[in-house]
Design a binder for these strands. Structure first.
Length: 587
RNA sequence: UGGCCCGUGGUGUAACGGUAACACACCAGGUUUUGGUCCUGGUAUUCCUGGUUCGAAUCCAGGCGGGCCAGCCA
């Protein structure tokens, strides 16, 4: 069912609490499902998926794989004003890119609109739901507060006949948006606000991506979700902890329907909702709504901008599904609030890329090197290993000539302590080429180094030292004559603070759910740096999506903006840099 | 004098009444034609106070701290 195998954990390995619950359920046949495990991943198609969803996807699909069950992909499409076919398509691309398959089990909450409608009538007939004429504002005011009970709607006592009539007329489109709702009749004094006569249906005259104009009343999440689970025969409905307080309502609806003799078309058992803590990452926000703010504000180029924590953004940045799955495995599943360090995500990425990314040489900040004793006009080809971690990756040839580019950082006129690279008098290895010794440098009027002069040792061809001589540094280079130009995009966090909403003077919250304060002041103005680099000729064949390690620098991914003769590379993640650490410590 | 959830190294996650472990991060060393990879070693943890128990991270009580909830969003 899925490529990703989460069942490969060694015997006796720690099991997360969700799996403990499931194993207990299987052992005791708690839900009467006879050991079946059927889960679902239920995104609302109103935006792109992000890495927080990856955690949920890995859990939902991984759990199904682990227990020999299956996982349904279900579009939770109950709000046509926000949902689009474009998002449905993007979600499917992302889930399968991550490595999971749902087979025939693709569903939509909208598939169940007729069944949900019939069940709503059942509840009305049983006196468990009523049509309410209160405006949204009035509903809000009569709901009470966190500490005081709500007051019953004046329409709460409507007769079954009147409710049936009104509900039918809501469905036929007789009333405008917002005129009436169908509400569950539970308890206006319940300490859990979700139980204070929650709205089951609202009137929305809108075009639905799948049902078109067929409906003008749409079920709310709470009414749709549990019933959808039940209809599909889901055994374990895993979700964000935020829904834990909705669980009593999830169970209430099921209780009522079962008591009224309703039957799931697919299950003799009922689903069980269990909640886990969502993933948080520093320097970003994992919120679909925020993504649109960033795009609309022009802070990123789109939902798939490589700085975005969306799966499409990470993909464009160069992340691999394997790395993301490994990450999701390592962060574990629990209920406490968590913020995972970037270091772990990047570790998973580097570990994967190290094994599979071919190496290449590229110079990001070029400075010219002239090998004074190298014959003018001569060109040699040197063998370069494509991937030292993977002998099967083979070798390629890299051209060498008298004038080269090296990284500006790889030369220092007056070397800092422990600096092993090029400085006057010092000898280093040019990777795969020769040992060279620096003789001098040329500077412009501003004191900037414009040219480094060296001599090479012909006996060290290929970078070998027949005399056993050691050099402490090997640096990368490209031949000036053969180098290609490339646009390279360097990325940093989108925000300068771990918590982008951490602002000095918060203003009052503009709306429920939207934190106060202006996150815009925490935008990192340097989250994108575009430079022109010199790259080795073999990189001319790079196609969008191809991943490389530019030796000694970072992993890079060829961007879709690449055009013939105009390659574009995204820095995916830098290599670990011990030298940078030494410099940083020195201050 | 609202409800729900949660407190274990720097960050995560385990340990399910019996020596607090694993990963990442950090520090030190070794190998190396990438200051990468790899290898070796090290620092560092149970929110507090009581109670139960031979024995408590685990059970109980009371504190303290954090998160979430008042959409006709999901």
């Amino acid at each position: 069912m899925a490529h990703a195998d989460s069942s490969s954990a060694p015997a006796g390995a720690p099991v997360n609490f969700i799996h403990q619950i499931i194993e207990e359920d299987i052992r005791t046949n708690a839900n009467g499902a006879n050991g079946q495990v059927i889960t679902r991943f239920p995104p609302e198609p109103n935006a792109f998926l992000h890495i927080g969803h990856a955690k949920a996807i890995c859990l939902d699909f991984g759990t199904a794989v682990k227990y020999g069950g299956r996982c349904h992909l279900r579009m939770d499409d109950t709000n046509p004003v926000k949902e689009k076919q474009e998002y449905i398509d993007a979600i499917k691309v992302d889930v399968s890119w991550l490595g999971f398959e749902w087979g025939d089990h693709e569903y939509h909450a909208s598939d169940y609109f007729p069944q949900l409608y019939d069940w709503a009538i059942l509840l009305i007939k049983a006196g468990k739901a009523y049509v309410c004429d209160l405006s949204p504002d009035e509903v809000s005011r009569t709901r009470g507060t966190l500490t005081t009970p709500g007051t019953p709607s004046p329409f709460r006592g409507r007769s079954v006949e009147e409710n049936l009539d009104l509900f039918a007329r809501m469905k036929t489109g007789e009333f405008p948006n917002g005129a009436r709702t169908l509400r569950a009749k539970i308890d206006m004094a319940a300490p859990n606000l979700n139980l204070r006569d929650p709205v089951m249906y609202r009137i929305l005259h809108a075009e639905h991506p799948r049902t078109g104009q067929a409906w003008c009343i749409y079920p709310m999440y709470d009414w749709a979700h549990g019933q959808s689970d039940w209809i599909e025969g889901i055994t374990h409905s895993l979700c964000d902890q935020a829904y834990e307080e909705h669980r009593p309502l999830y169970d209430w609806f099921l209780d009522q329907l079962i008591a009224l003799g309703a039957k799931s078309p697919n299950a003799r058992y009922r689903p069980k909702q269990r909640e886990f803590a969502r993933l948080n990452l520093p320097y970003t926000v994992l919120s679909k709504r925020r993504f649109l703010d960033w795009v609309e504000g022009g802070f990123v180029r789109g939902l798939d901008d490589p700085r975005m924590p969306t799966l499409s953004g990470l993909r464009r940045r160069g992340y691999t599904p394997e790395a993301i799955r490994d990450f999701c495995e390592r962060i574990g599943v629990a209920k406490r609030e968590n913020v995972i360090e970037y270091a772990l995500l990047e570790h998973c990425l580097r570990e994967d890329l190290n094994k599979r990314a071919p190496r290449a040489m590229a110079v990001l900040h070029p400075v010219k090197v002239v090998i004074d004793n190298y014959p003018e006009g001569q060109v040699e080809q040197f063998d370069a290993v494509n991937n030292p971690e993977d002998p099967a990756a083979g070798k390629r040839q890299v051209p060498f000539s008298k004038v080269l580019y090296i990284e500006r950082e790889d030369f220092m006129e007056t070397p800092a302590p422990k600096y092993f690279r090029l400085y006057p008098g010092n000898e280093v290895r040019l990777r795969y080429a020769y040992l060279v010794r620096c003789t001098s440098c040329v500077k412009d009027s501003g004191g900037n180094v414009t040219e480094v002069h060296c001599t090479y040792d012909p006996a060290t061809r290929g970078g070998n030292t027949p005399d056993g001589r050691k050099v402490k540094a090997t640096i990368h280079w490209v031949s000036a004559l053969h180098a290609l130009d490339a646009e390279v995009r360097l990325y940093d966090h989108l925000f300068t603070k771990e918590d982008p909403d951490d602002v000095p003077a918060p203003v009052p919250a503009p709306a429920p759910g939207i934190p106060g304060g202006d996150w815009r002041q925490n935008i990192n103005p340097r989250s994108l740096e575009v430079i022109q680099a010199k790259i080795e000729p073999s990189l001319a064949q790079a196609k969008p999506g191809d991943k490389y390690q530019f030796e000694r620098l970072a992993y890079f991914c060829c961007d879709p903006d690449t055009r013939p003769g105009k390659p574009v590379f995204n820095r995916t993640v830098a290599l670990k840099d011990t030298w940078a650490r030494i410099e940083k410590k020195r201050g």
